[in-house]
Design a protein around this nucleic acid. Structure first.
Lengths: 415, 415
DNA sequence: TCTATTTTTTCGAGCCTCGAAAAAATACTG
DNA sequence: CAGTATTTTTTCGAGGCTCGAAAAAATAGA
């Protein structure tokens, strides 16, 4: 239900605006902030003076900037790295990583760990996550007080309240409320996010020119995932993280998918599907658990060399992705696409069939104008997105020490 | 770019809140409004006193209510019907209608007209629309001054700024900026909306319990359309009205669709597709321009009677709709569905295959819990939605006589 | 050293919302 | 029927916030 704006909300929101302006712009002066927010200089002056006093922002020493201009030089404001820290935990197939990030967004410490997620028990999985976080939190170099939030990203479906993993291809376990578990264990607010959504968040921070209000991040990996930003907001389902692009139906009753159903896009374009087709196995053949990156690279190499089953496998992948994107574009209209993940390195093999398929769909009207970018390495993206998401939450909690989240349009899903 | 909240925005927004509370609740008292908005009694008192003085709201005479309770009786507030009026124009296949609606949402006058949209020239089409509006506006019974907005709904794709029809199945013409044309002609602000989106808006007003934050309205007619509300907001594409559910790909390279492409959902579930399959024509047969409702009813009757090609045609329609919805649910998660339009009366023939198909998709996890409602008559819904949308705009323009739409989150797409 | 220029802070004015108290309007009670 | 209890609505002063104008600060050029 929509709710009125109270007088005290005003300052709170404008503080948030100033903080987010600084986070976006890097080192804006008060005058620049006034310009982008539309607030008066007096207001910006008052708010930033508060924020500096509270240790959230710092002024940049004048000596570090060359003014060149006449008049009183602008003094840049920046986030105080020591104002807080966040933990970004990424859990993917056989791999767990954590990074400590300061308030300015710099990685302070990190740790990575291989494990066998597919065979681990529920408790082992939870235990490993708790343990890796504990090692970071108990690091004597780190001021525990300052860890303001933990964000955990996982390959799979999470709930729409960012509390739990509902289902994941990396483990047979389901419904693990990681956010609640970590929160109880460490007394630090935690959130649970979908990996592809975090990729989208990261892309928006990395290249806001290309990835601004509407774009799509597709993960081409063992499975197919998607992060979607529409109208500047991260898109999620009504109950879950949603955006399960890989499980849109490409061919009713078609190839067997890892999810047990048939004809999903992933059953043609996931690594296991490409591998299956390259080996000319039946579409009904049980998907293999994992295909190594090296093996996929070898497949791609053979596909580039000769026009054999490998090339045909990539063609089929492109076709599935193309028709899938075409159906997606029928719903949301065309938007820039980022292809992320190991198989994005083979996008040259995928693209022709993909474009040909899109051209046969409603989205194909502007087929030529749809642009694809590739980024083979998904892990840094996921971690980055995780970190930015956690920091954004801190931005909205440090500045709002009173009541908040009074429903309504507050606390939107801004990417 | 996000923008700060200024002091004068505060009153403007809270006025909007009060107006929309009254529009939603019917005849709420000041106390009730205070409760739903979360604002203090004093604030509500001040704002409503202003609104009454300006003729936007009126108090309901105490005699009309029975109090039963002890204490000072609540005095209900209602929209003043004379505060403004809006025009709702609906343009569909061979049919044009207009209604004058007062500020309280009651239809004051209406006019309907048959015409041959498929063969009309661009100028004739525009001319008819202008003429029917002119006849209403020049009605001596109507105070022209009070017509605050014209909303025009059309079957087809509109642009995301609600200015123009981009493409429509009811006419070979494309890119007609109806909103601009009407605005220039009559000097009254106008908007151009997609018919299915207006259906969704209307459903939300009609039954806010069932159709609240997330739901889907599917038009089963000659073509297949969709209106989608997600997180309480009307979903639109990045450039167009979007939500072209009928042109998601059901079978790559499959049946010939009215849009010229192949395998669209519509090419199996649209009236022309059901008709084509019932007659056992080839999937490549050119779609016919129109099938009468009577003919469709006859088809449905035969399908119910004997297990022949008619029943099979409806089965194929259900399958296409089911897989389409399954793919949609993969993206947005399951949500309540309203089946609207003449063919919704044959939903009994469609539902079994539809549910079977959904069960084979990612959305099928909760296949049983997905509920369908049917509403055979789309026109009243479209007009109603159109009217409510126009009135909502008036709500946000009458109360905001200053600067407005200062970008940012203002002026969202609230259904 | 003085002046022009640009940025930042200061200060009073004007709104807005809030809480508390008063006023208004009714039902119960004896 | 007068008095009391109860509920709704209005009134009024306090506190906070943003704004514009003016002042102060800080620099480059003359």
């Amino acid at each position: 239900m929509s709710v009125g704006i109270r007088h005290d909300d005003l300052r709170r929101r404008n503080r948030a605006m100033v903080i987010s302006a600084v986070r976006r712009a890097g080192q804006p002066s008060r005058t620049e902030i006034a310009a982008t927010t539309g607030l008066s200089h007096s207001t910006i002056s008052a708010i930033s003076s508060d924020l500096i006093q509270e240790g959230i922002l710092t002024e940049i020493k004048a000596s570090e900037t060359v003014s060149m201009k006449r008049g009183r030089p602008q003094v840049g404001l920046s986030l105080n790295p020591e104002a807080a820290a966040v933990l970004a935990v990424v859990l993917s197939l056989n791999f767990l990583s954590v990074a400590v990030i300061d308030y300015a967004g710099q990685v302070v410490a990190e740790e990575q760990r291989r494990l066998d997620t597919l065979t681990m028990s529920r408790d082992e999985l939870i235990g490993e996550c708790v343990a890796i976080v504990r090692r970071r939190v108990e690091d004597p170099d780190l001021d525990v007080q300052s860890v303001a939030r933990i964000a955990l990203a996982i390959q799979g479906i999470t709930d729409s309240h960012a509390r739990a993993m509902l289902w994941s291809p990396i483990t047979p376990q389901t419904n693990i409320a990681f956010a609640d578990i970590l929160e109880r264990e460490f007394g630090i607010p935690a959130i649970m996010e979908n990996d592809c959504n975090m990729m989208a968040v990261a892309l928006r921070w990395r290249d806001p020119n290309r990835y601004r209000d509407d774009f799509i991040a597709v993960l081409l990996s063992h499975g197919i995932g998607m992060g979607l930003v529409l109208k500047g907001e991260l898109f999620t389902g009504t109950h879950s993280s949603g955006g399960e692009f890989g499980h849109m139906i490409h061919r009713p009753g078609g190839a067997l998918c890892r999810c047990g159903r048939r004809g999903c896009v992933e059953a043609y374009a996931g690594n296991y599907a490409i591998w299956r087709n390259a080996r000319q196995l039946s579409e009904n053949a049980e998907p293999v658990a994992d295909v190594s990156d090296a093996e996929m690279r070898a497949l791609a190499a053979r596909a580039r060399q000769t026009d054999g089953p490998e090339r045909e496998a990539y063609r089929k992948a492109g076709e599935a992705l193309g028709f899938g994107l075409g159906s997606l574009f029928a719903l949301i209209d065309p938007a820039p696409v980022a292809m992320v993940g190991a198989s994005a390195a083979a996008f040259d093999l995928i693209e022709p069939a993909l474009r040909e398929a899109i051209a046969q769909t409603a989205g194909g009207q502007h087929s030529g104008s749809i642009s694809f970018d590739t980024e083979p390495n998904e892990l840094p993206l996921i971690r980055e997105g995780c970190a930015m998401r956690a920091l954004s939450f801190v931005d909205q909690e440090i500045f709002a020490p009173g009541i908040q989240a009074r429903a309504g349009s507050v606390g939107r899903n801004v990417a």
